[in-house]
Design a protein around this nucleic acid. Structure first.
Length: 1028
RNA sequence: GCGCGCUUAGCUCAGCGGUAGAGCACUUCCUUCACACGGAAGGGGUCGCAGGUUCAAACCCUGCAGCGCGCACCA
């Protein structure tokens, strides 16, 4: 590290080391290396969308994963962090359509399905890996050789296989149901893709005449008058006395106005679900355009009249006035029409929540349509496997459970699992996994020619649970319940049976029959197409592939014989940790858990860490339209990736939303710079003849040094100063705190520990104090002392050199540990410094010799180590007192307006003899010209002073003291002391206190009181001496 | 409506039973031979409100208020 610059410049360094890691395959996971001593650790990345560009959410999420992965490597684990991207069916679809329209002015229908998909692949090739490159800039240590995409051929195969399996079990079915329809993207959506948003609107009251009682009117309140033409009933609560007599009669619907009266008659029905308190207690029932109404319609056998087109314009059934209009335009017109008819009673402003398409941001339209649904598998197992808050971990003989961090999300998960609804999985889109189902309607006679021979023989229309088996070469045919034929292939050698396809028949009118074949067998699919079968046009919901991510990425096939030979799958599944945001707990996490149990028979991960959401300074969500989303790459360019990571982690407490402020990144940069300069300082000392110190020998081979790697040969216990012991104890504490923070996934706490330890304890105190030993000539400068027990002859040059060398050894020890503690958070700068300081020097290549990445994570200092180096709490207490004294002395300077750079004389009236080396340190830290140690010092009246455990410190300023100011200063201090004494004394005076409190607490309070009283005494006498 | 979270220094947040903390911002001093992306000292808080438990409460319990977020078929 020659000519190390004054400020850390991350840009070049980051590129250099990232390439270094890639070249040496540091990120690659090898199942063959896993052993009892080297356990496996795995994370699968939440695959970013191929449409995505890196935002702060990714930064947070992936930094956490990288920290976990790097920590695991330093713990000696074989780490797989498996990366990849998601095809993001609907998001990509929208991006493409927008681009097509903008650039070429065409729609996807102009282009046609095949061309469109071709374009999609081109687009993916061009932009799909941008985000991967960006993750590399962040320093992510993913095993890139295993990068996966949810539409890779093997992955798609998994998706289809899973579909056929679930279809076989009857869990996937087709049905005509009310679904969430997005009129913008023209597809159905799942419930999870609908976001409820408050909408300002009106509640319109209109009246309908009762047909059987002319002159009697019912008033109905509605937010959607445009759907009146689709009303097929009017409903009231059966217990509502106002309307009971009207039940069974008919109302005359006002729209479409042009229809004859008899075509507008709708029954007045009674339904428990009607809330008499709301509106007028009368509900218009529109089964085709409202979920609740659809259910009512079902119960009462009402027709559902669809009056809208797929794009949410009104169709002909809406009548002459509304037909062709957009739904919102139609609403206005409908109100006008009601007004004109004299049917509108009143309108009042009203706010209700309506569903929006999550992606297209337009209100969804409840719509009756035929879709594919999935009844979730393995629900019970998935629900039971997550540890709930309050339950004892691993209690009794229960199997190990999955943990959420923070645990409160377990409740949210549980609630959803308890109310789980079938999943609408078909999308009327083109980009995605096409549903592997082929259909054909035919006559029963024709069936003979369409079906495999063996199948035909076994087929019985009335078949129920009877199972028939026909051997036909390697084929086995089985008819199952539920009118399905399952085609399976049995391997003669292994006897293993593999599912190929599933066929279902649905009798239609008369002689007709509807054939549905689900297969992932390409040959069979081709055959079906030649026989006139048509493939289902829809694709699957994106999450139908994402939910397989933890094992499909590891090469899962679903074939026992293959999967059992798959080392990656066997070694790294279940994964250890999942890091994700809580907003996809239902979309992704819950579904992965169910898929894990269903297809792997085991949970997909052991821990789920939920990050918070990143918001801007004002607490708003980050969004492109608000322009409040900072570009992480710009931040990396300006501050460095390490700075971005550190700043983000420091401001991200677990489970809490984060208000992002660029100041945090600035803090990260400043911190890196501090680290840089502290190491630079060490570097500048190296001329003193100290050999480059290896902070660690091997730990596998040498038992005790384990805990403290290093330098038994280099640190001489006899030469350790009190400051050395102090910093070693502080280091020990920092390591323990780090371990505790990691155990609980508390990363912001870990950064606080690092920050405090390194900046406050190491730099501000230890390094400053060490300059008393390191500075050239420090020991030669005259410093008057009365110490009668100097530890060493001070004039001895060789002794001086030895002390200096020892100091540097301690510094190397501490820095070597510190860099390792920092590495998961600051991977680049620590690698640079690790090499720059030569700490890799003597280490085995795979234990830090090549890269700090594989250096061992520091262990807390153990008792043997502490005994050997004579570390104990009393040293710590002494140094604390010393630094306290320094702080008081500096405070004196400041209060007396002594300029910071002015050297002044201090006198310490010592209680106990103080070694000269300690006096040197104090003198240096006080920036004193001299520090006299005089147990008999008799100050002049009014000499400013401060009390400490080591004695009273005086700052004589002949003639310069402003007596009045000094009085004021002392009075202020006295007031503070009095208040403290009052507080402690009132506690001690409480008779209950002494009786009930634990002895150590009582002891502590008594000492506290004594300390304050001593200070009070000192300040009082100082005041007296100047006549205060 | 149900559930969850939050309310601590000007700002953003730690702390969750025994002397109120950090970063930023602020005041003053200092370009002292690692760092001005720095050093030193300092000001600033009745820990949302009201009760309760306890020798002791920011911390535990019960209400209340305000803010935020999920879930829910109130048209």
């Amino acid at each position: 590290m020659p000519e190390i610059p004054k400020t850390y410049e991350p840009q070049a360094v980051e590129a250099k080391w990232y390439q270094f890691w890639l070249d040496r395959q540091c990120f690659t996971a090898d199942p063959a290396r896993v052993s009892e001593k080297r356990p496996a650790y795995s994370i699968v990345i939440p695959p970013p969308n191929i449409t995505g560009v890196l935002h702060m959410g990714h930064v947070l999420n992936n930094t956490v994963q990288d920290i976990l992965a790097r920590k695991a490597r330093m713990d000696g684990k074989e780490v797989l962090w498996l990366p990849g991207t998601d095809h993001a069916s609907i998001a990509t679809h929208m991006v493409l359509e927008r681009e097509l329209k903008k650039k070429e002015g065409v729609t996807r229908y102009d282009l046609g399905r095949e061309k469109f998909i071709e374009r999609a692949w081109e687009w993916k090739a061009q932009y799909g890996s941008i985000i991967i490159a960006q993750l590399k800039k962040l320093g992510c240590s993913c095993d890139w050789s295993r990068e996966r995409f949810t539409m890779d051929p093997e992955y798609s195969h998994c998706v289809e296989k899973v579909f056929v399996e679930l279809y076989k079990k009857g869990l996937i079915y087709r049905g005509k149901r009310m679904v969430n329809w997005c009129p913008a993207t023209l597809t159905a959506l799942s419930d999870e893709e609908v976001e409820m948003e408050p909408q300002k609107g009106f509640l319109w009251y209109f009246k309908v005449e009762v047909a059987e009682q002319p002159g009697t009117f019912l008033t109905i309140a509605t937010t959607r008058p445009e759907t009146i033409p689709g009303d097929t009933a009017v409903a009231v609560n059966p217990k509502d006395p106002r309307y009971v007599r009207l039940i069974g009669k008919h109302a005359i619907r006002p729209l479409p106005a042009e229809l004859p009266r008899e075509k507008k008659l709708v029954p007045i029905i009674a339904d428990e679900q009607i809330d008499p308190e709301f509106g007028t207690g009368v509900l218009k029932v529109t089964p085709a355009h409202d979920k609740a109404d659809f259910e009512i319609g079902r119960r009462h056998n009402l027709p559902a009249v669809d009056i809208m087109n797929p794009n949410a314009t009104m169709n002909d059934l809406a009548g002459a006035d509304l037909g062709g209009l957009d739904r919102f335009e139609a609403r206005k017109v409908a109100v006008e029409k009601l007004k004109a008819l004299g049917a509108l009673v009143k309108e009042e402003p009203y706010e209700n929540k309506i569903g929006f398409s999550q992606r297209a941001k337009v209100p969804i339209e409840p719509r009756l349509s035929e879709q594919w649904f999935l009844e979730y598998p393995s629900v019970d197992k998935a629900q039971a496997c997550v540890e709930q808050e309050g339950s004892a971990p691993g209690a009794g003989a229960l199997p190990e459970k999955m943990r959420f961090h923070p645990q409160r999300w377990a409740k949210v998960y549980d609630h959803w699992m308890n109310n789980i609804q079938d999943w609408c999985i078909s999308r009327q889109l083109w980009w995605g996994h096409r549903i592997p189902v082929w259909t054909k309607e035919s006559s029963r006679q024709e069936l003979v020619t369409l079906l495999p021979r063996a199948t035909l023989e076994s087929w019985k229309w009335t078949d129920e649970t009877r199972t028939t088996r026909y051997a036909d070469g390697s084929l086995e045919i089985e008819t199952l319940v539920d009118q399905a034929i399952v085609r399976e292939k049995t391997d003669h050698k292994s006897g293993e049976t593999r599912l190929l396809s599933v066929l279902r028949l649905k009798p239609k009118d008369g002689d007709r029959v509807f054939i549905e074949v689900a297969t992932y067998d390409e040959a069979e699919a081709a055959q079906l197409e030649t026989k006139g079968f048509a493939r289902d046009p829809d694709v699957l919901d994106t999450w139908c592939s994402s939910w397989l991510w933890p094992f499909a990425t590891m090469g899962w096939t679903g074939d026992q014989s293959q999967d059992s030979k798959n080392a990656t799958l066997q070694t790294f599944y279940p994964t250890t940790d999942l890091v994700t945001a809580p907003d996809i707990i239902f979309f992704w996490v819950a579904r992965m858990i169910m898929a894990g149990y269903e297809f792997m028979g085991e949970m997909p991960f052991r821990n789920v860490y939920f990050t918070g959401l990143i918001r801007d300074k004002q607490g708003r969500k980050m969004s492109k339209t608000l322009g409040n989303s900072p570009d992480p790459l710009e931040l990396i360019a300006n501050y460095g990736a390490d700075a971005l990571r550190f700043g983000t982690m420091r401001s991200a407490p677990p489970g809490q939303d984060i208000l992002f402020d660029e100041k945090d990144v600035e803090l990260g940069r400043n911190f890196c710079n501090k680290l840089w300069n502290a190491c630079r300082f060490r570097q500048m000392q190296s001329g003193a003849g100290v050999p480059p110190a290896a902070p660690e020998t091997t730990r596998e081979t040498e038992g005790r040094r384990d805990a403290c790697p290093t330098l038994e040969g280099e640190i001489n216990p006899a030469l350790l100063t009190s400051d050395d012991k102090w910093i070693l104890l502080k280091l020990d504490q920092a390591i323990r705190e780090m371990d505790a923070a990691f155990a609980e996934y508390k990363f912001s706490e870990a950064t606080s520990t690092l920050y405090r330890f390194f900046w406050s304890e190491y730099c501000d105190w230890y390094v400053e104090a060490s300059k008393a030993v390191l500075s050239v000539g420090a020991t030669e400068r005259q410093s008057v002392g009365i110490s009668d027990a100097p530890t060493l002859p001070r004039s001895d040059a060789s002794t001086r050199a030895a002390r200096r060398a020892n100091k540097l050894a301690v510094i190397d020890f501490v820095l070597g540990h510190t860099l390792r503690l920092f590495h998961p958070f600051l991977p680049v700068i620590t690698e640079e410094l690790w090499h720059g300081l030569g700490y890799n020097g003597d280490l085995p290549a795979n234990q830090g010799g090549d890269s700090i990445m594989f250096a061992h994570w520091p262990k807390p200092l153990d008792d043997d180590f502490k005994a050997h180096y004579g570390l104990n709490e009393s040293d710590k207490g002494f140094v604390d007192a010393k630094y306290e004294l320094v702080t008081r002395g500096r405070n004196l300077r400041r209060e007396l307006n002594v300029a910071a750079n002015k050297k002044v004389k201090f006198i310490l009236k010592v209680k106990e003899p103080l070694p000269a080396s300690e006096a040197d340190v104090i003198k240096l830290l006080l920036n004193a010209e001299t520090l006299d140690l005089d147990p008999n010092f008799a100050p002049k009246k009014g000499t400013p002073s401060a009390l400490s455990d080591l004695g009273e410190l005086f700052l004589p300023l002949e003639g310069l003291v402003d007596v009045e100011a000094e009085k004021a200063r002392l009075k202020k201090e006295l007031a503070k002391i009095d208040a403290e004494i009052e507080k402690v004394q009132s506690k001690l005076n409480n008779p209950d206190f002494a009786q009930k409190v634990p002895p150590n607490v009582l002891q502590e309070h008594k000492k506290r009181l004594a300390d304050w009283q001593a200070k009070q005494q000192q300040v009082k006498s100082a005041l007296d001496s100047i006549g205060g």
